[in-house]
Design a protein around this nucleic acid. Structure first.
Lengths: 322, 322
DNA sequence: CTATATATGCTCAACTTGAGCATAACAAAC
DNA sequence: GTTTGTTATGCTCAAGTTGAGCATATATAG
């Protein structure tokens, strides 16, 4: 009798609060993996749900009370062994992962889910302040390079690290978040790599390389981050995360939080206004330090005028990013 | 008892021969839909296949003898009613679709599959020679606009058509192949729209709007076309479709075939050589009309030097494409 | 009033892109 | 062998885009 297949849906629900990308997580207490944080998951009800997206909205509403706005399919994960329950004769788990964007909202009483800083799981993805460099990963990665068999393999590993972490002429590329996670997994720099082989991670792993997640959920999170960063540039998705009116600096800080890099302020304004993505409201931010900023609103018309371009990323200084 | 879910894998296997994108198809003879062309499909064997991609390679090899090179997951399709068998109590069909690129190769004897011109199914996507314009779709689309309820809806439909078919300032965007197919489906301009509702299509549908495919396979094909066009620009995937050495014109014709537009020859050369994607071999095309062209080879090093950029598309003339 | 912070306008050099002119080198037709 | 057609390849130029930073305006905190 063939091993059965089970399908479920995973959601990476992203918000941004106080300049921090946040992701909704649930605790996953099982016999096998006790207490790791996980992404919310739910079923496709073949009778009730007309589409996968509607299924997702339904169980997110049921589990968390949240009504998600923008939703997009990410990827379908189905590798053998991604669910440890499978090893004991359990079914093969196929997960269709989705990305959802919402303004952060308080969770109702009794809801099991909780918001976490997304960069707690992938700290190396936040390059907004110089220090959070590839630097902190160095000891873990150096170990992997040294473990390579032969000079050729060691050089190849060095090159791959340099490419992933932006030390080549090409510079840092936020879109490569998944490639970076996969490199770290191969290098044994994230705890999952040891856990999945039933081994114990070296003591410095967790501190340097972020918080572990259940199953392959950190991989899914990295996929979501890569996607949202790519999408930023050519679709106006950020406005899903903003209130109806906002200042240009608020918009900039939000984009920076997701992109994980600092942007050049004047050029950011030029690009956003030049693309006619926003229009002034004539009202101004009430108080606070500095000259009051005008409040803007998103020009929904752009969605009809053009394919709806995104927010360009005029990176500031450091390295010839391209 | 809940309705069961069945998972399978679909493959859009693309090649390019004689300046035509080709797609591998099979005949699908069922009681319900007799003889429509379909994309090849196969199962995930939860015992034998470690990953979806390996499963795909396995059954493609078994069904067709083809060893596919580049493979990438496209999207998972699972809408209710995409398989007509479902209506009579059958299982819900969930299909994970993949894109594969291969140099076209003859099919072994006894293989059921066959190569078809991809643009036979989506003729409006081929804009290499001016005539295959949105023009031919006009009568079908105009009918849909007139059927709109109220002036506002009719105007919205006009706008959407203009946006999809490149009649706005933004110009034609090859990447929007899926949006165009979905518009045509909604507008009843493709035969599937009638078939899925159990109705008979108006007589001019097929001739103007391409060949029908089984299930939602034409949607999947449109998704694949959009993806490959997007990918062209930022990853060097075209070289999967070329022999080891080639002239720059051969490369250009290949890109044009996939992109569905003509490119500016000198600028194409400038971009390809400027990005150091290729290197001359010092040998030249043997004979034929005109000055002999140098043969180039793909510089595999670029994959290590940078994230591996794609081939930019310096469109020629007609409209301020952007 | 001063220091500090933010908002906003503007400039400039470097680079990229779109378009096309010009010349080179071959084959086939005459 | 000259003409015609065809492809290859080099080069230029104007317009647009991008990266960087100067300068000024208008708030708050003390």
């Amino acid at each position: 009798m063939a091993r059965p297949i089970v399908l479920n849906l995973n959601a990476v629900i992203l918000a941004v609060t106080a300049d921090q990308p946040r992701v909704l997580t649930v605790r996953r207490d099982l016999r096998h993996i006790a207490g790791d944080l996980a992404l919310p998951a739910g079923p496709l009800d073949a009778d009730a749900d007309r589409t996968l997206e509607l299924a997702l909205r339904r169980w997110i509403r049921g589990q968390t009370g949240i009504e998600v706005g923008y939703v997009e399919q990410l990827y379908t994960f189905a590798d053998r062994g991604r669910d440890p329950g499978e090893r004991e004769g359990g079914a093969r788990l196929v997960s269709v992962a989705y990305l959802a964007l919402v303004p952060e909202q308080p969770l109702g009483a009794g809801v099991e889910a909780q918001w976490q800083n997304a960069y707690d799981f992938v700290p190396w993805e936040d390059r907004r302040d110089g220090q959070a460099d590839a630097g902190s990963m160095r000891p873990l990665l150096a170990r992997w390079v040294r473990a390579g068999k032969g000079a050729a393999e060691r050089r190849a590993r060095e090159e791959r690290i340099a490419l992933c972490f932006g030390q080549t002429a090409a510079g840092w590329d936020g879109y490569q978040a998944l490639e970076r996670y996969e490199l770290l997994y191969e290098a044994g720099a994230v705890e999952e790599a040891w856990r999945d082989r039933g081994a114990k991670a070296p003591p410095d792993t967790g501190r340097l390389a972020g918080t572990c997640m259940a199953l392959d959920h950190r991989r899914i999170l990295a996929t979501a981050l890569a996607r949202v960063r790519g999408k930023l540039k050519y679709r106006p998705v950020v406005f899903e995360l903003l209130p109806a009116t906002f200042t240009l600096l608020e918009l900039q800080r939000l984009v920076e939080a997701l992109a994980g890099i600092r942007l050049h302020k004047q050029n950011f304004r030029r690009l956003v206004e030049g693309a006619r993505l926003v229009e002034g409201t004539g009202t101004f931010r009430a108080s606070g330090p500095g000259r009051p900023a005008e409040r803007f609103r998103f020009r929904r018309d752009v969605l009809r005028e053009r394919q709806g371009p995104g927010v360009r990323l005029p990176a500031v200084g450091r390295g010839r990013a391209r």
